[in-house]
Design a protein around this nucleic acid. Sequence first.
DNA 1: GTTTGGCGGTGGTCAGACCACTGGGTAGCC
DNA 2: GGCTACCCAGTGGTCTGACCACCGCCAAAC
Lengths: 235, 235
Amino acid sequence: MTDAPAKAWRIVLDRIENDLMSGELGPGDRLPPERELATTLGVGRSSVREALRVLEVMGLIRTGTGSGPTAGAIIIGTPSGGMSALLRLQLAAQSFAVEDVVQTRIALESAVVADLATAVSPDLVDVQRVLGAMDDTSLSPEEFVALDAQLHLALAEAAGNGVTVAMMGGLRDAIEGYVARGIRRIADWDDAAVRLRHEHHRIVELIGDGQADAARAAVTDHIRGYYATVTAPTE
Amino acid sequence: MTDAPAKAWRIVLDRIENDLMSGELGPGDRLPPERELATTLGVGRSSVREALRVLEVMGLIRTGTGSGPTAGAIIIGTPSGGMSALLRLQLAAQSFAVEDVVQTRIALESAVVADLATAVSPDLVDVQRVLGAMDDTSLSPEEFVALDAQLHLALAEAAGNGVTVAMMGGLRDAIEGYVARGIRRIADWDDAAVRLRHEHHRIVELIGDGQADAARAAVTDHIRGYYATVTAPTE
DNA sequence: GTTTGGCGGTGGTCAGACCACTGGGTAGCC
DNA sequence: GGCTACCCAGTGGTCTGACCACCGCCAAAC
């Protein structure tokens, strides 16, 4: 009972995790070929592939066929997709509630704007750029929503916390389906867009003025109102 | 080019995700046997297994051999492990920094205590129970740390947000290795334990008094001090 | 009635084979 | 000599078949 035989794919996963932590493997490096890993670790190639598949879905590696520098399993430097895949699946499995996702997004994003408001000289170039792009009144709802996602992500990136960026991106992606469904049901989109634009400008303004608590409150209201609009607009 | 042939394992993953979202599959249900899924979807069994492996590591299913009710792939109701596996791997891959993980934990946990402080009648039974257990001065550092993890998780659970619970648990698990390493280097553990106990009691007290902002500040200082202690204690 | 053995179904793993794709080297042509 | 087209080796992607370990169930034996 004590010496439960480790599953073959877990051996592979543990080995790769160890090599990552020890620095033997790092961003940009290429993993050994699947067949070589299999013989090295004494497992079958299918077990190696199961482990690599996990790493791929989690966004840690990118696999490519053929030969040359783009082929093989390559460790990705900037993570993306892993968090959204996880959250999306757990949301689908009814492990998570949409309301909880929204609430968590508020918690993270209010912390982001509070951080930015108290920062000495935050780099808001990207934020300002997206903010300006959203002032275009000829945008379609879909374009507007896409820019909105960019704006919120730019705020997180300005705060410089990679974990928060990944989590916020994941949370948003996970409920993207709900948002897209709700957008189409909004009767007077223009009114909503005007309000959202105003709130965005105000939040950025509060950040610039260093009013952390006000920015926190503003972003909380903004996100809550946003989801309230898209989830139950046409009762 | 436009109709890139979907990878076989992605077909399986998408199908299962769809069945989850449509309600065809739910917590407690059993997935069809691997061989049946393979023939149904027109893919090989190995591709099915790659998809199931992803779901297993993400904490969505539990697989069991043999026959009977415990055999097969069963959808898990309460997620656990998926978030910590993801964060741990991305931390190992140097995609995330420890400092960012700590900061994100502060953001989430301060929101939790603020929520609890403003809640009408929060259920703090579990919190109080763990809090009492930690007053035992004969606890070993390892036991103390384990209870500390329980306490913080109990706070998140009291707030009733499943997403936050999963994220906080994952964040903590991901840096567990760093904490365990630091614990052993603390010279005067008793002093540190006394301080941590005091801070815990104060945080819970502030929650009971409904002082959201003070609780937020207290938990921020508490977590930051905790990691400062275990990461650089013996300079 | 109790025990025990076999049986069927499940995941776990491996080995081998074939395909698609890519890059580079080489043979052939101009 | 230079250019082009082709072939080849290496990689991931997939399928097939086989075997094993495990477990519950049930029938046969006691």
